[in-house]
């Protein structure tokens, strides 16, 4: 399994044809306390960079974008009742959804861990 990162601070962990998507620890820390997450419906087809979910902190709402194109196969229902999981474990239990990749070639345009870490340090 390989994990890729976007400039919009999403991560996608790819295992075969399925990618698990969430927001990075950097993004979760910047957002502050997450109080609401709007998740995509199963079966929804997403183009790369399309609005995929919404995450709301006490202060503001932020869009979460699809790192690559695909079809939503599962949303993390646990976040509906426990949105704070996004802060507690953003790159683990705080995942947003799983998508079936339709254009795996798009992954080559994303960052690896080292590149993303350098990107965050440059901000």
């Amino acid at each position: 399994m390989t994990t890729y990162y976007t400039r919009e601070h999403e991560w996608i962990a790819v295992d075969g044809a399925i990618g698990t998507v969430g927001i990075t620890a950097y993004a979760a820390e910047k957002l502050g306390d997450v109080v609401f997450v709007e998740l995509p419906e199963t079966g929804r087809k997403l183009a790369q960079n399309a609005e995929m979910a919404v995450v709301e902190s006490v202060k503001a709402a932020s869009d979460v974008y699809a790192p690559v194109s695909g079809e939503v196969v599962e949303a993390n229902a646990a976040l509906v009742e426990a949105p704070e999981t996004v802060n507690a474990d953003p790159e683990g239990a705080g995942w947003f959804c799983k998508i079936r990749l339709t254009s795996p070639g798009e992954l080559s345009g994303l960052m690896d861990k080292a590149a993303y870490t350098a990107f965050c340090e440059s901000l």
Binding site: G32, D33, V35, S57, V58, K59
Partner: peptide, 12 residues
Amino acid sequence: PIQYPDGILSEH
């Protein structure tokens, strides 16, 4: 200051 390290929820 908008928030301190504790965060808005716990400050509130």
